[in-house]
Computed example of a mutant assay.
Amino acid sequence: MTGFNQERLMKLILAPVVSEKSTYVADRAGQYVFRVAQDATKPEIKAAVELMFKTQVESVQVANVKGKRKRFGRYEGRRRNWKKAYVCLKPGQEINFAAEVK
């Protein structure tokens, strides 16, 4: 966790991804899925999760999600691309999103 700007780490993780796939992955593999900043790197994501949730991270996989093409009448546009991080915690560790923040 040393060597990283703490202010940047706090802005890196944007939100947890809540979907059928993410809950399935959390139950089966103990991985948690987060929406992260486009320029985030794996070591930064690891440090940010360890800082924010006080857990130990084993590994991080990232995926770039392409924005969907959408139409509004005759106008066509597309949503933004975004980055998704799969964070695998060390055995015995867990993240409880429902816990109250003190």
Results as ranks from 00 to 15, higher is better:
96 N>D: 15
42 K>S: 05
60 V>K: 03
66 K>P: 01
49 V>C: 06
9 L>H: 05
37 A>V: 13
54 K>L: 09
10 M>Y: 02
50 E>P: 02
70 K>Q: 13
61 Q>S: 15
94 E>W: 01
81 N>Y: 12
70 K>R: 15
39 D>L: 13
29 A>T: 11
29 A>I: 10
66 K>E: 13
58 E>C: 04
47 A>C: 07
62 V>H: 03
37 A>H: 14
64 N>K: 12
11 K>A: 09
25 V>S: 11
67 G>S: 10
21 K>H: 11
55 T>P: 01
60 V>T: 03
93 Q>D: 06
68 K>D: 13
77 G>D: 12
26 A>N: 11
46 K>Y: 00
51 L>D: 01
46 K>F: 00
95 I>Y: 04
22 S>D: 09
69 R>Q: 15
34 F>V: 06
74 R>Q: 08
78 R>P: 05
85 A>P: 02
11 K>E: 14
50 E>D: 05
18 V>C: 03
34 F>P: 01
6 Q>P: 12
86 Y>P: 02
97 F>W: 15
5 N>Q: 09
86 Y>W: 12
3 G>T: 02
1 M>Q: 10
67 G>P: 08
102 K>V: 08
54 K>S: 13
12 L>Y: 02
75 Y>M: 10
37 A>P: 04
82 W>T: 03
68 K>M: 10
64 N>C: 08
5 N>V: 00
30 G>F: 09
56 Q>A: 12
40 A>H: 05
102 K>E: 11
20 E>G: 15
74 R>C: 02
34 F>N: 03
13 I>M: 04
44 E>A: 10
86 Y>S: 05
59 S>T: 14
30 G>Q: 06
46 K>W: 01
92 G>L: 05
32 Y>I: 11
79 R>S: 13
58 E>D: 14
82 W>Q: 01
48 A>S: 10
12 L>S: 01
77 G>A: 14
91 P>C: 01
52 M>R: 06
100 E>L: 12
17 V>L: 10
38 Q>C: 09
31 Q>R: 15
70 K>S: 13
58 E>H: 11
40 A>L: 09
65 V>N: 09
97 F>D: 03
33 V>E: 02
68 K>A: 15
67 G>W: 14
48 A>N: 02
95 I>G: 07
88 C>K: 09
76 E>H: 12
40 A>P: 03
37 A>Q: 15
54 K>I: 06
95 I>S: 06
86 Y>I: 04
89 L>F: 08
77 G>Y: 11
13 I>Y: 01
52 M>S: 03
31 Q>I: 10
53 F>G: 03
8 R>K: 13
18 V>F: 07
76 E>C: 11
31 Q>M: 13
61 Q>N: 15
83 K>I: 07
56 Q>G: 04
96 N>L: 08
87 V>F: 06
54 K>M: 08
23 T>R: 14
28 R>T: 11
7 E>S: 11
65 V>Y: 07
18 V>Y: 04
78 R>E: 15
95 I>P: 02
10 M>P: 00
92 G>R: 04
81 N>R: 09
1 M>V: 08
15 A>T: 06
56 Q>H: 11
15 A>L: 11
9 L>T: 01
10 M>R: 12
40 A>T: 07
91 P>N: 03
56 Q>T: 10
83 K>T: 12
101 V>F: 08
93 Q>V: 07
48 A>M: 02
39 D>E: 14
100 E>G: 10
